[in-house]
Amino acid sequence: MMDIIFMVLSLFAIGGALGMVLFHQPVHSALSLIVTIIALAGIFALLSASFLFMVQIIVYAGAIITLLIFIIMFLNVKESNLPKEPYKNITLFFGAIALLPVNFLILRAFLKLPMAHASLASDFGTIKALGMELFETWLLPFELISILLLVALIGGVVFGRKEEEA
């Protein structure tokens, strides 16, 4: 049963990713990226990361991609303003060939790991376990992330204001 779920989810993930790269219109690309992200959320659930499963759906699919689709619709890009990409398929083909040896090396490195499916503690991946780890070991990075988000907020305001006449 787990196998079938994993196969279906990974097929959706890879199909959505390929669609994202291949579609010409940005809206179609964004919609197929949502398919990939929700499939990845399901795979997080398979790996018993239940809190990250929720975060992936709420933050990624709910906030980031929605913002992206909102911006795409807000700009209302005409077909004539889209860049022409005459060499897209050729670059994709040769890029895929060039990436094959790299991927082979990565696979060989990971094959050396023993890949047993360990039995986990019952609270693994829950919000409590993650919160304990976050606030005991990773407190300083957590505060730094909040500063980063504040800087991003200020940056968004600075980019979004009206330009003064120079």
Binding site: I64, G125, A129, L130, W138
Partner: peptide, 15 residues
């Protein structure tokens, strides 16, 4: 749980 915390940081940075 450390890598899951790291994954959550990656999501925050992506936002």
């Amino acid at each position: 749980m450390a890598s899951q915390v790291m994954a959550m940081f990656v999501i925050a940075i992506a936002a």
